[in-house]
Design a protein around this nucleic acid. Structure first.
Lengths: 207, 207
DNA sequence: ACGAAAGTGATACGGTGTACGACATGCGAG
DNA sequence: CTCGCATGTCGTACACCGTATCACTTTCGT
């Protein structure tokens, strides 16, 4: 697992093939199949392995917002360290031991509040879903320029002629200025957006 | 593109291989390379192709919440029709013509409001991120039982001994009851969660 | 009518996950 | 101490993948 994780960190998830991982361990491909049944098992184990990194030392911050903010920051850092995580989350439920411990910790964030289990679960779902989406978008945006080797907004408008066509045709009146001038993809978008989501939750907290 | 989309709908994204798509068209593999440069191009085209399905007939609902709700419902339906979408969104920026038109429509939802472009963009990002996360989780949860051929909560608690161990060890005090009794994965979780997110946005709308 | 362009495809290369079966090694029971 | 079996290692093979190369046919504009 550690080998596979290191490999994915260094060269991306595509580098994690059975043969390659085995080679990294000084063994041959089939050897791995004494310990896993299918490659999918290895991937699931990798996911749970890194889930441990996002566990927080107890006690949690007393304020629920602070606690969730803490989780959010750690999750974001996790994806920065292991970008391949976003290539996996969308295809399996994460129910390894560390994943479960992590959910438990998140539930604990709502401890002091007078809400029932189901409500806490729903709040958590909203929080999780938002984080999933944000983290994926950030990973995609970070990976995109590297793939195409070019900077950003300028290229988007110029390189693809069909975009020029749409923009000049006036079909993208609202979007066009953002393509031309770009958007300041500031880093504080993260805390700001998350803050809005937490605001939405907070409004339904006391009742 | 249509063939590839139909194939992915019917048999999943893995079935979309160059050879298979070509065969479906009564041709050989290399023929496709007259029209695309790499397989990735085909996947990008597929994504943009289905993006057309989520475009909305103008005029949009005047109320911004109604408009976003409309988009959200259509996006959710889209993923129901084409579950393989979640296997693709996390690895490329969607900048095809239909994708751009779709973003333009979403921006139009904020038209009547007195907010600047950047703010609208940020609101949209939060909305989009939440939708991404929700839709992925829903797709994963829908796919999970099918893969493992078993129903749900009962299995989760019983089948994997390490889960039993964690639960019995008292380490998952808050999570355990939900594993034992399951959670009512009601369909209205969608509109409810989305409502909360929109509430969070609304709070910062007038200022 | 002819030359160029566009389209089709056979073959091949290096990769993938994994089924199968042959071996070596270590350990517990007689 | 020895034997039998479980455990671990891995060579080989199969069916599949994306795609580079290059030969061939068809179509079309001049």
């Amino acid at each position: 697992m550690a080998t596979a994780v290191a490999l994915a960190d260094a060269e991306g998830l595509d580098a994690v093939s059975i043969r390659r991982v085995a080679a990294e361990l000084g063994a041959r491909a089939m050897t791995l199949y004494s310990y896993i049944e299918r490659k999918e098992d290895l991937l699931a184990l990798m996911l749970d392995e890194i889930s441990a990194e996002v566990l927080v030392a107890e006690p949690l911050p007393a304020d629920w917002r602070e606690a969730l903010l803490l989780f959010a920051r750690r999750e974001r850092e996790l994806v920065r360290r292991h970008p391949w995580r976003v290539d996996l989350v969308h295809q399996r439920v994460a129910v390894g031991p560390n994943g479960l411990r992590h959910v438990e910790q998140k539930l604990a964030a709502f401890d002091g509040l007078e809400i029932d289990r189901l409500t806490a679960w729903r709040f958590l779902a909203v929080f999780n879903d938002y984080m999933t989406g944000f983290v994926i978008r950030e990973a995609v945006e970070r990976a995109a320029p590297r793939e195409q080797g070019i900077d950003d907004a300028e290229r988007a408008a110029v390189a693809e002629p069909y975009i020029r066509e749409l923009v000049d045709g006036g079909e993208l009146a609202r979007l066009a200025p953002m393509i031309e001038q770009g958007v300041p993809g500031a880093d504080d978008n993260f805390e700001r957006g998350l803050g809005w989501v937490l605001d939405g939750i907070e409004r339904h907290l006391h009742r």
